[in-house]
Every structure is written in structure tokens, then in C-alpha cells.
Design a protein around this nucleic acid. Structure first.
Lengths: 223, 223
DNA sequence: CGACGACCATTGCGACAGGATTACGGCATG
DNA sequence: CATGCCGTAATCCTGTCGCAATGGTCGTCG
């Protein structure tokens, strides 16, 4: 689960990124519309949170650009004030929701959850694999009746693999999903997480296993 | 447990809020219909207490708005006089109960309790965990045959965790449930409550424990 | 077919962030 | 005036993470 945050108020952006990453959502952040376009070309996000007032233009112009490129990723627009006029403009241009600043972090989360839950969103409601049920929206994992509590990064790995269960996930795709572009990875941290995750899944008797495809990536299998 | 109070008479609103919060119910209060709509979008309440006569319109117009948005939260309507005409209008529009001003605080509580007890209410009748029984409506906790009386905030924490026992409750969700949007939290007050609560639960041998999911939230487990 | 090299698995370590605990002072309540 | 609750902050403690070293596995090429 990864979202793109386009916001030039540093403090706010940091707060949002920090809070989201706590719940296991990776955040790419940029202050510039131009960079945002570049990032959106490079990878797909599960959602985009977009400020209107940006140094290099009105954020809202981003939306038609996205849509015309065939991108259906849900967009939540942030505006400085709760002006109905602005709101209508945003929704007309294809925003999925709208939020006036200042807002409660909890509110942003709620809307993100709402927007990610939509059928248009890429994420399925819930994924079953072995004795395990993964909810990619709430970011939790049940094994039988018990919740399996995992550290943040391991949770992200597992959810990403679960979303493509039975199919190989490229190593690079996993890394991209779990780390944002600021956090470069300089070692086999991913392998370490996979290893620890495997142990936890075995201990919990989750009925799945993580296979490695040499030189390519990883793969979640039920057994 | 959290309710939304929409009322423009300051004295009355304060009295209601004070009394409710004593019993462990958090209250968000606003005098304006517009704000109420905004708040109701932001979070879900267990009940809404709604005055009709508001500075920016008839409170009752709020109800169709809510219902059309799929919100089933029970609504209690307050009106200045006991006019049957008004009452019918309110109930027709989907209010769950109705109360003429002036009223006894005790009466409002009784109706709130009634309305919260209804199956439509989100809260289950009673939650058992370990040797502990939590009644989220009456806001009390029994351990064995003995009632465990907890300070207000600790009680709110426990009930919130109990309602989602076995599953992780986000830190931010806990804070939202326990504090209203005016009370900003500037420190680890929540942690402090959890800590004190843990001690009390251990002393009372409640047969449950509160786990922390680092960076995410808390989780109530039976043991 | 065997050996080498690339890739992966596992594990311990140190740094660090975040949580746990507790003492204190303010405040309300009775 | 005493008691108890709450928020704050200081301090201590613990889990998680990235890292790297070591050992294992697989494929490939001589």
C-alpha cells in the first residue's frame, strides 16, 4: 500500500507521512507538481493526496492530466479553506474526495480508507490464503480467529505478497512498495524481513509459505 | 462511546457535555449545522443529539442528509416545545427519539441509553473477555462478581479496546474516541492511561492484557 | 560432473524510536 | 482540606530496523 502526497507545507507533509507510515502505508512525498507528474509516471499508487496551492501551480490541474493518461487512482484534494466553490471544481475535475485545511489526521485516514475501499481501488476487500486472512485496507492479518501482529515492515511485505498471491512479485516491486524513494536500501534488509516473516508465519501455522524465485523475486503460496 | 451534540444554547450544551463526560461518554459539541455535517463526515458517533432551532437552519434537515449518506446513527431531537406537529415531523424524517425542552438531564440520559441499547446501535450488548465483562452502554466493567470502578479516561480506553478485542486499535482511533476535537493532546497522556489501566487490570486479576503494537496501536487480549 | 560464483537465508549487533512507568502539580470534588 | 483524577515530562526500557558476516543453495560453465 503506497500513496503519493503532494504538499508543500513541510510540517504538515511530515506529520501525514509519519502517521501513515505508522499504519503500514508507504508515502512518497513531493512539494512540486512537476515532480508529482514524474513520480506518477514511474509507478502506480493506491491513492494520491493532493494540495491545491503548490509552488509551481494549482494542484488540481494534475487530475485531468492523470485521467487523460488513463490513471484511475483515487485522488483526495486538500484546500486551504472549505469553500464550496473550490470543492465543486475539484470534484468536477475528477477528485474522489475533498478535505479543507486544517483537518484532523483521523479524518484524512477515514477518507483514505473510504476511498481505498471503493471497488475502483486496486485493493480487494480481503484476501484468504491458507489459514490466513489479510485485509489490505485495514492492514491486518488474522490466522484463524487470532490476529497476527507483525512489525510494520514485515506487515507491508506480507500484504504486498498476499495481494499477488500465487504470482511472483519482483524484488524491486517489493522494495518500491515498502520503502519510499527517500529511504534507499543499502543491504539485504528485505531478505531479513522475509526471513523473520517466514519464521512468524511458521510459528503461527498460517498455512502459507514464501518462496524465492532466484534472481527475480518472491512468491506467496498456500500449502 | 462518543456522541455529537448540536446545540446553540451554550449553558445547556455545557451542562449536557459535563454530565455525559462524567459517565465516560465523550462529547463533540457544535452550535452550527454546517459544522455538524462536517464532523459527522469526519467520524462516526454512537448517537447524535440535535437541537432543531439552530443559527444556520433547522436542525432537522440534518437527518435526511445523514440517512441519505447511509449513516444509521441514532438521533435524538430537541425542540423548544412539546408540539405534536414538530414531533411527528422529526420522527418521520428518521429521528429515533424526541425530547421537548426544558427537560431533566436524567430524562435525556434515559433516552440515550434506550437508543444506544437498540440493536441498530453499533455497540454489542455486553463483551466478555477473560474474567471481565464490559457493558459498553452502561459503561461499566465487572470482574467476576465485583464491579471494577475505573477513572473516566481509563474506562473509555478499556471499553474501546474491548469493543474490538483481539484486534488492533489504532492509536489515533483511541485518541479520537476518548478526546473530543477541542481537547488536543500534547503528550503521552494516552500511554499514561494505558499504563495505569494495566496495573488496575492486573491487580483485579481480570484475565486480560493490553498489548502494544509498536508504531500502530493497542490490542486487548484474553489470556 | 564437479567446482565456482552469484544469490539467498539466517542471525547477532548497535542505533534509535517509541512505549512504559512514575513523580509531580494543577484542578475539581466532596 | 483531603482525596483522586488528569496531563505533563523526565527517565528508563524494549522492539524494530538496517546492516553485515556467515553459511547454504542453486545454476552454470568449463
Amino acid at each position: 500500500m503506497k500513496i503519493l502526497l503532494v504538499e508543500d507545507e513541510t510540517r504538515l507533509a511530515e506529520a501525514v507521512a509519519a502517521s501513515l507510515s505508522k499504519t503500514g502505508i508507504a508515502v512518497d512525498h513531493t512539494a512540486l507538481l512537476g515532480d508529482a507528474i514524474e513520480l506518477a509516471r514511474q509507478q502506480t499508487y493506491d491513492a494520491i493526496v493532493l494540495d491545491r496551492r503548490l509552488p509551481d501551480g494549482d494542484g488540481i490541474t494534475f487530475i485531468p492530466w492523470l485521467r487523460s493518461a488513463g490513471v484511475v487512482t483515487p485522488v483526495i484534494v486538500l484546500t486551504a479553506r472549505n469553500e464550496p466553490k473550490e470543492r465543486v471544481a475539484g470534484l468536477d475535475l475528477g477528485a474522489d474526495d475533498y478535505l479543507g485545511k486544517p483537518f484532523l489526521m483521523e479524518e484524512l485516514f477515514a477518507r483514505l480508507r473510504a476511498v481505498l475501499r471503493r471497488p475502483s481501488a486496486l485493493a480487494e476487500p480481503s484476501i484468504v490464503a491458507g489459514r490466513m486472512t489479510v485485509d489490505p485496507i485495514r492492514m491486518d492479518v488474522m490466522v484463524g480467529e487470532l490476529q497476527l501482529d507483525l512489525p510494520r515492515r514485515e506487515l507491508m511485505v506480507l500484504v504486498t505478497l498476499a495481494k499477488r498471491k500465487g504470482r511472483t512479485v519482483l524484488r524491486s516491486a517489493l522494495e518500491a512498495e515498502i520503502y519510499n524513494y527517500e529511504e534507499t536500501i543499502q543491504s539485504n534488509a528485505l531478505d531479513a524481513h522475509v526471513s523473520r516473516l517466514r519464521k512468524r508465519l511458521a510459528d503461527a501455522d498460517a498455512g502459507v509459505s514464501i518462496h524465492n524465485i532466484r534472481g527475480v523475486g518472491y512468491l506467496l503460496k498456500e500449502h
